[in-house]
Write a protein that binds this DNA or RNA. Sequence first.
RNA 1: GGGACAUUAGCUCAGCUGGGAGAGCGCUACCCUUACAAGGUAGAUGUCGGCAGUUCGAUCCUGUCAUGUCCCACCA
Length: 885
Amino acid sequence: MTQELSTTYAPNEVENKWYKTWNDGKYFAPKKGKVDEGFCIIMPPPNVTGKLHAGHALDITTQDALIRFKRMKGYETLFLPGMDHAGIATQSKVEELVWNESKKKKHDFTREEFLEKIWAWKEEYGGFIAEQQRVMGASCDWDYSMFTMDAEPNEAVREAFVELYNQGLIYQSDYIVNWDPKLQSAISDAEVEHKEVQGAFYHIHYKVAGSDTLLEVATTRPETLLGDSAVAVNPKDERFAHLIGKKAIVPICNREVPIVGDEHVDIEKGTGCLKVTPGHDFNDFEIGQRHKLEMINILNKDGTLNELGLEWEGLTCKKARSKVVAKLEELGQFVKEEKHVHQVGHGDRSKAVIEPMISKQWFVDVQDMAKVAVDSVETEKTKFYPKGWENTYYSWMREPKNWCVSRQLWWGHRIPVFTCGSCNHQWADKALKPDTCPKCSAKDLEQDPDVLDTWFSSGLWPMTTLGWPNKERMQERGFDRFFPTSVLVTGFDIIFFWVARMMMMGTKFTNKIPFHKVYIHAIVRDKQGRKMSKSLGNGIDPIEMVDTYGADAFRFALAAGSGYNRNINLDPERIGGYRNFINKIWNAFRFISPVLELGSSELPENLDDQEKWILAELNDTAKIMNDSIEEFRYDDSCSAIYSFVYDSFCSWFIELSKNIVNGEDEAKKIQRATVLKYCFREIVALLHPMTPFITEELWTHLKEETEPLLIQHDYPEFKESLAFTDEQKNMNKFIEVVSSVRFLRQSVNIKPKDEVVVALFTDEEETANYFNANKSGISELARAKEVTVESKSSQRPSKAIMKASVHTEIFLPLEGVIDLSDQIKRLEKDLAKVQKEYDKVSKKLGNEKFMANAKPDVVIEVKEKATDFEGQLKSINERLEAFKA
RNA sequence: GGGACAUUAGCUCAGCUGGGAGAGCGCUACCCUUACAAGGUAGAUGUCGGCAGUUCGAUCCUGUCAUGUCCCACCA
């Protein structure tokens, strides 16, 4: 068989083959296992316009590893995929496309015509990303796949909206909202990013009507004075309090406005005198409401000034600003300009400067829902991993703002609110197209033109995908089995947008939390820690990584970098490193494959020392894997299996097995083959969640005919019967001795092929017995023609080099000339090192307070160390003396 | 303005309730040894950000300063 397997593993073909086998064989479908419990992860649906990026790859890897792990543990697992319609992104994309094709704009079509174009685009180009998810090995059940604009989600949206509407939790209001002039739509608070911008304070004189008094007002937005409807001062401010109740005259437009007293005005800030523009400033809006001021809108939907902008009508705010300032200078009412850095809101999608503007929008009153959602996390019904992210969640949810859910777009779930043309009755309806007005039965109905914020439907997603609100569908898709879902895996950037909304909607409509655990994974960055971006050109294309290194290596690299950290700085070289690891596994298999047939499937009774050791190491690894995956510490899982495979299994156990496997003792050979096979079966099983492809491939050679594919096989667990701690201790000494011999050989340039004599001196009886029993192992791995084991009372070889461990002195007797000065230097270095350690512990033992206060077992430990170091020092000193004599 | 998190080997990071500083990658030297050169063997490297405190003992706890990243907040 060895001849058939090449020395390097070629992943691509294997990967395609297995994905097809699993998928065609319905291995991803939920199936009852030995644990009668569901385990469900709803995949965060990627944008339909999207292309797989490194963040998605991490998403898939962490979720799929969990799903595969739980599937093997015997849970009924469901990894449920989906796709998001991504309102703004998709609409913009198609608008651009249509413009390039026909130089036509959205409004050159009817709403229906344009929506048809978007759907057509979605059918043809959308969903490319799902293909890429398959390449990564995502074991999701594609039969469950849902698109957020499908009929089912639409039904859920209508159900939820109407419920909230009828409970009075959705209301329409003329309110100041974040207006995105580029999208020409309102957006929610969460969608506004505040960015630092270099601006200025402009100081302007307002005249007080009927007097010569001038009020100096400071503003960053002088152009908005055209919409001023008051000047406000703090009533406690002695400078201005007497003016309250008088009128001020807004420059340029000469509007006479009241001077009001309001606590909000900060006496220290600016000039202490505030111009109030309720139509275009959130604070001023509130002041306006308190004092019943006029709300003046001076902007068009595209962010340019309207007719109230006078001679500057049609200009953007930015352009109008300097012109207004120039005019003020001309009028002699401009005082000065001071540079000022401040935070300005930008749309997180459009990047446009957000204009606060009053408009009629739909809002969800989230106050009560947010309280429940906060409580669910406080009482740990839903737990965050890592726990620290709770704070981010709380910071938003403890002081929530009502959620503006209407968007002036076309692509999205249409708001199910209807108005009767004849009696003006307004109501929300679960029916797609109600026929008649419930009040007057008229047929002349009009639906609200706006669509809902994408996050409204996303908030319902865990319920929607499991069939809610349709009873039959819920039955079919296993709502009772899978809801609440087990884990939500996502990035921290959408804790507000998504996690918070799902928590609110979930608890509102089902009285249950939508998921038990939330794992917030890191953000993938480039190797220098920079965000991956198109402009920097530092993005890592997952598909390219898979082509170059294989999906398993890429998955392992991502998993190995994932724990409770915030960033993964991904360097393709590291993926290459793990590709080498995958190849190592492949070659380890090539070693054992010729003897696989010899091995039986039951572990033998009379395990030898080495076999007990490797099984105990394997057992420990299984324990770490089980515990760490459960807690999303993939970094720990990966490093445990990595070092087991690399160090314990390949470097020591395989090396120690070579002579047995190639030897004459048939019984021993069969026994060793059995243990090798057992270990390898466990290795591929342990690795399967991270590296599903190569493990499934190798499994075909390891499994019994009657056994299922690895994807369904039992996950290894810790077994009390395989805990051999004594054998582990002894083997560690063995490893130390062999490494020391290798080191000594190199220190005098003994060629790898040349054989040496090894003389060991130890006073530990058990250790001596172990070395005697495993002499052949030492000879093979250290290239010794002779190994002797004696007590420390025995005569040491006269001409030899030596290294002292805590338990054993290792001597290499040498013929010919030894460079004594070299050896002395080396031993003195060892001596200094050990002496330093010894001084540390003996100082402790001499410290009365330590002896009195430290825990007893710590004292014992330190005493033992002192004894060990003493022995080691003695060994080294004796040898030094011998050399110097 | 408020808050969170971080600072450990050249790089990326791990270090559980305080008790001899770790991993991977990279680096150096030697080796084509019959699974593997995508390999083997061995090795070097740290005032655990600074200062002060608590303690018998601090990478770990407290305070403080510095640096960095991120989040929130009404653009006077």
